[in-house]
Design a protein around this nucleic acid. Structure first.
Lengths: 236, 236
DNA sequence: GCATTGAATTTTGCATTCAAAATGCTAGCA
DNA sequence: TGCTAGCATTTTGAATGCAAAATTCAATGC
């Protein structure tokens, strides 16, 4: 995450050209999106020239952005041979999840005691919105609300470093979320887990919330991993 | 951490000029050292021009390095006003330790079951070397061995992402270690904790090792924090 | 004497340029 | 036909150049 103190330029996303705030920071975000959304494929070279033209910028800010993304682990820099989108092996995926499970646990522990009542109410609202999406089988909105709930809980831990650390890891695996295609049973189960999570948060049961969040991520990952391995196999 | 695949250039640190591997990556390391060692003071501006001359490089690689360090949280980029060494507030220190405690706990959990016998033997050797330093009251060497032990355990968890994540956070607080001046009683206590840690690791007691490592870091931090707050107060 | 304004200087952000490395292509040879 | 050497092209890494923003500082007015 680029620690740039943003100036107060408003978020006018109307133009496709880059103009607002520091250029390189904008480019970092754009590139990250391209990678997360899969437009830049893992293992493939990041075409400097093409992207420069596409963004209407010179190579300097683009290269700065690549360095930042490399430090986040999203791309790999090969000396004198440019940048490639970091491919994520199953081993790395396992590693990242292992760490994230611990961080979710920490978030639960802290959020249960530190989150404001208003925060809990907000999570509750998001939860019910998410249930609505489940009922409508609106997977895309469900994912977004799901992410929003987890983010709200992590932010509720009142630890900006935790938010940042979790976010960096989440960024590396987020692109796989695009593949996860919840089957009916698994989806129902996930929703049931969320019910428990909400209940534990409402009761401010630290130990339970911690455990539930960790388990939930582990379970989610089981599914994600199966989908990934299936895809990886299919890709051969 | 800059994810650069290093080429096989040997680590010849003889000359003060930068020549080996990708320049920007070298600069990142050098700048990090300057910050960690306190030569660049927190809150102060990072003088681009001066550092360029000092390193004998142009502004481009230096600026790239600053972007990377910003993403690590070591510096803050102020748009149009350059970079400053990120000052670490007590609140941020608290946050970082909170996350690191969780990561140490995870490391203990994993290392107890995954570490090789050879790895445990190595930790044991480091441990006794450290005891020797304690006996000789050689604080500097003690610190180095202490760090080596913790690193060995964290690496013993067999999770590169954990190593990297922990390392990034550790980098942000390492400069404070330079202040920590272990009092006799506290030092003895720390050594006693290390004895317990080694015993738990030898017995491969996951739960215990996890708890001990977390507690140990928390305790260490108590001391560190007091020293920091005393210093901060004295600085006024 | 102090605050304010505005010009000179410095610093920053990005584009451009240049040299070195890597890549691709062609031709020559077995 | 297949392989390799050598050249041309492209791409990368870093230096330099240039315009805009910020800072400094002195002169002016109060």
């Amino acid at each position: 995450m680029a620690t740039v103190i943003p100036d107060s330029t408003p978020e006018q996303d109307s133009g496709q050209r880059i103009a607002r705030r520091s250029l390189h920071d904008e480019v970092v975000e754009r590139l990250r999106d391209l990678i997360v959304e899969g437009e830049l494929e893992p293992g493939k070279r990041v075409p400097e020239r093409v992207l420069c033209e596409r963004f209407g910028i010179s190579r300097t800010p683009l290269r700065e952005a690549l360095k930042v993304l490399a430090s986040e682990g999203l791309v790999e820099l090969l000396p004198n041979r440019g940048a490639v989108v970091a491919p994520l092996t199953v081993v790395e995926l396992d590693e990242i999840i292992e760490v994230m499970v611990a961080l979710e646990g920490l978030a639960g522990l802290l959020a249960a005691s530190r989150m404001s009542d208003a925060g809990i109410v907000e999570v509750k609202a998001l939860h019910y919105e998410m249930l609505a999406c489940h009922a409508r089988a609106d997977l895309h909105s469900y994912f977004k609300l799901n992410q929003a709930i987890h983010l709200a809980i992590i932010e509720g831990a009142g630890n900006a470093t935790l938010v940042q650390t979790y976010g960096a890891l989440n960024g590396r695996i987020r692109r796989f979320r695009y593949m996860a295609n919840l089957s009916g049973a698994r989806w129902d189960h996930a929703v049931a887990e969320h019910e428990e999570i909400l209940a534990a948060l409402t009761r401010r049961d630290s130990a339970l919330l911690s455990r539930l969040l960790s388990d939930h991520l582990r379970n989610k990952y089981q599914h994600l991993k199966q989908a990934y391995e299936a895809e990886a196999q299919a890709a051969e």
